[in-house]
């Protein structure tokens, strides 16, 4: 039951600014994700919410009350670390019970809660094992259990899935969604994996060099990236960018772009929106095939077109080969246009 507010939050390490003037509200019960490349400051934000890192200026609030100065243990939060941070000398049972025993919860209640959480996370058979005797996925579940057991106001998760293999990661994603449905607690999640962010979150915030680049529901960010960074970061494979000058007025763009006539700009088109065919049709452009990559369902093709390398999509059957000519269409309504100097979205 907590709404988290960031008010002009800044963080500096010595003279380097890590977070620069962050303003944001995370709604009660929301699954909110900070996503960005490494070094963008996302983990620092999490550590500041946790109280493990001091704030240089600005304020973080829980339900309107500043939490500045509260030690981590009094913020009623729980955190899952990338390293899991399980206590190596304690059994699974002791790890799960630790937050309760520190808070002097009576032994009988503690026992009951541990049993309950262990059952929920399928950890019951492993209660007397030490962390090092568990697999990566099991350790991950113990870390989640230790965070869940106290029923905190806020969940913080710092790249919790990045140490798991690809298959387990997808499984745990589903698990996290299920847990969030069962315990609808305000959750701040941090990841560098845009796909993970998209799959899990109610809203995502894109961070780059300590600044918020875009914030919104995943679909919105995907459909209308606010700037070049956002366009390049969200979506896999990443968006194609083609530099050019605006010469022709497309009928549906005319009103918005009139002032950009004869100006340089950058056009973006997602590889999924760029259809490649083997034969020439009306309105197709042609390029030389540089590279093919099959994923089973689709084949990604890299083409060289007027000095640009652009990636497009074709069906599972290959109709073309390296160095051949292939044809493609760019549906105008799927085009994203950005100002070349500011990187901001034009359309």
């Amino acid at each position: 039951m907590t709404e988290i507010g960031f008010h002009s939050l800044c963080k500096k390490f010595k003279k380097t600014s890590v977070i620069d003037d962050l303003n944001l509200t995370i709604e009660n019960r929301e699954f909110f994700t900070f996503v960005g490349p490494s070094g963008c400051g996302k983990s620092t934000i999490l550590n500041m919410v946790a109280g493990l890192e001091s704030i240089t200026s600005g304020m973080i609030t829980f339900d309107g009350h500043s939490i500045d100065g509260l030690p981590p243990g009094e913020r009623d939060i729980a955190m899952v670390f990338q390293s899991y941070a399980l206590y190596p000398h304690m059994t699974v049972r002791e790890n799960l019970a630790f937050p309760l025993s520190v808070r002097k919860v009576p032994s009988a209640d503690r026992q009951r809660e541990v049993e309950k959480i262990a059952a929920l996370l399928a950890l019951t058979p492993f209660l007397s094992r030490l962390p090092r005797e568990l697999s990566g996925g099991q350790r991950q579940r113990v870390a989640l259990g230790r965070a869940l057991i106290r029923k905190p106001k806020v969940f913080l998760m710092d790249e919790p899935l990045s140490n798991l293999d690809a298959k387990l990661r997808i499984e745990m994603r589903t698990e996290l969604k299920r847990l969030h449905r069962e315990f609808p607690v305000t959750t701040i999640y941090v990841t560098h994996d845009q796909e993970e962010a998209m799959a899990l979150s109610d809203r995502i915030a894109l961070l780059h060099e300590g600044a918020l680049r875009q914030c919104g529901p995943p679909q919105e960010v995907y459909a209308a990236p606010a700037n070049l960074f956002s366009a390049g970061f969200i979506g896999s494979p990443p968006m194609n960018f083609i530099e050019g000058t605006l010469l022709l007025d497309l009928p549906f763009l005319a009103s918005r772009l009139a002032e950009y006539r004869n100006q340089p700009f950058i056009a973006g088109i997602r590889p999924t929106d760029l259809r490649i065919t083997g034969e020439k049709r009306e309105n197709t452009l042609s390029g030389r095939v540089l590279f093919l990559e099959t994923t089973g369902e689709t084949t990604w093709i890299d083409l060289e077109w007027r000095g640009n390398r652009i990636r497009g999509k074709t069906g599972p059957v290959r109709r073309t080969a390296r160095d051949e000519t292939a044809y493609f269409t760019i549906p105008p309504e799927k085009l994203h246009l950005f100002d070349k100097s500011s990187g901001e979205r034009l359309w």
């Binding site: 550590n47 946790a50 493990l52 981590p72 243990g73 939060i77 390293s83 941070a85 230790r146």
Partner: peptide, 25 residues
Amino acid sequence: PRDLYGAARIDGAGPWTLFRKITLP
């Protein structure tokens, strides 16, 4: 690992508990 201290502090451990339950063992 430093994370262990972070985790224990979030779990509510004070300096003495940190020393007794994490550092010493």
